[in-house]
Write a protein that binds this DNA or RNA. Structure first.
Length: 290
DNA sequence: AATCGACCCAACCGCCCCACA
DNA sequence: TTGTGGGGCGGTTGGGTCGAT
């Protein structure tokens, strides 16, 4: 399309962020909230592109980020959601509180695609679970990172690459789109979460993506049991002088999920195992986007 | 100990969508 | 209706790390 870059990039820093830059960005967002990414760097005293700031915040500095140690439940859910939605990382991330689309994307590319290929449980071209993996070998999908050389070679073993047989257990989704939290600055200098607006604008593509979560969140709100799900979801304010969870009025978004969501996931599961498969799966995935 | 190759992941890039003037 | 800007998303890159030789 040849659209002009989001910023001139002249004289702007690139590459890894320094602790000082992180501190500046964090401090600014604590004070002013997210948004206005284009003007943020200047106001915050950063020599960075606004997009870079946004990315850094979204993928690394946000207080609700959970890093590393993808649990088996998350692992399983990523695989299942990917089979439904394909490479819609932000949607998948929306089901995994504290996980970012970037992290899930990386995790998929480095662990799961390889794992599934070895297991032959997913066609990496179509992202669809194979009905009969033994009959239909997984193709060498173009979905892999170009830099990947070989599968299954030596690797730092982080305990994730041990190919386990496909699980039959259904793990519950975690229907929280942390990403959807939009921190707005209030006059009292604290953050509030506007549960009625997932983003700064009324109906962006983001909202499109998030609508399923919104729906689920509504469901969740009926289920109740607010806030008892810790799940390693601490807002690590000990190490980072960041937004404290208690400052965010969104704890109703951290529910436990019983009943209705179990049904919902069973619905997912049924769709995944349907013989008619593809059509329903696609329409179901589409329905998530509506 | 040095070298090499494989891998991981933070960050960048380009494109797209939507809101708004 | 059209153009523009802001923001989000998925794909890709490249430097750092680690294990093998």
């Amino acid at each position: 399309m040849g659209r002009a870059p989001c910023c001139s990039k002249v004289g702007l820093h690139k590459g890894p962020w320094t602790p000082k830059e992180d501190a500046l960005l964090t401090k600014y967002i604590q004070a002013h909230g997210e948004g206005q990414w284009k003007s943020l760097p200047k106001k915050a005293g950063l020599l960075r592109c606004g997009k870079s700031c946004r990315l850094r915040w979204m993928n690394y500095l946000r207080p609700d980020i959970k890093r590393g140690n993808i649990t088996p439940e998350e692992d399983d859910l990523i695989i299942r959601m990917h089979s439904l939605l394909g490479n819609r990382w932000s949607l998948i991330a929306g089901r995994l509180p504290g996980r970012t689309d970037n992290e899930i994307k990386n995790y998929w590319n480095t662990h799961l695609s390889k794992k599934l290929k070895i297991q032959g449980t997913e066609d990496t071209d179509t992202h669809n679970m194979l009905e009969n993996p033994q009959e239909e070998p997984a193709s060498d999908g173009g979905n892999n990172n170009k830099k990947k050389k070989k599968n299954g070679g030596k690797k730092k073993n982080k305990g994730k690459d041990n190919a386990e047989p496909p699980k039959t257990q259904v793990y519950l989704p975690k229907p929280i789109r942390v990403k959807a939290m939009y921190l707005q600055r209030t006059d009292s200098n604290t953050f509030t979460f506007d549960s009625n607006s997932n983003s700064a604008s009324g109906s962006t593509s983001q909202e499109k993506d998030e609508s399923p979560v919104t729906k689920e969140s509504n469901v969740v709100s009926e289920v109740g049991n607010v806030g008892e799900e810790s799940d390693g979801f601490g807002f690590f304010s000990e190490d980072h002088d960041l937004v404290n969870a208690s400052d965010i009025e969104c704890q109703s978004y951290f529910p436990t999920y019983h009943g209705t969501l179990q049904q919902l996931y069973e619905e997912y599961f049924q769709l995944l195992n349907m013989d008619q498969g593809q059509f329903e799966r696609n329409s179901f995935a589409e329905s998530l986007l509506e």
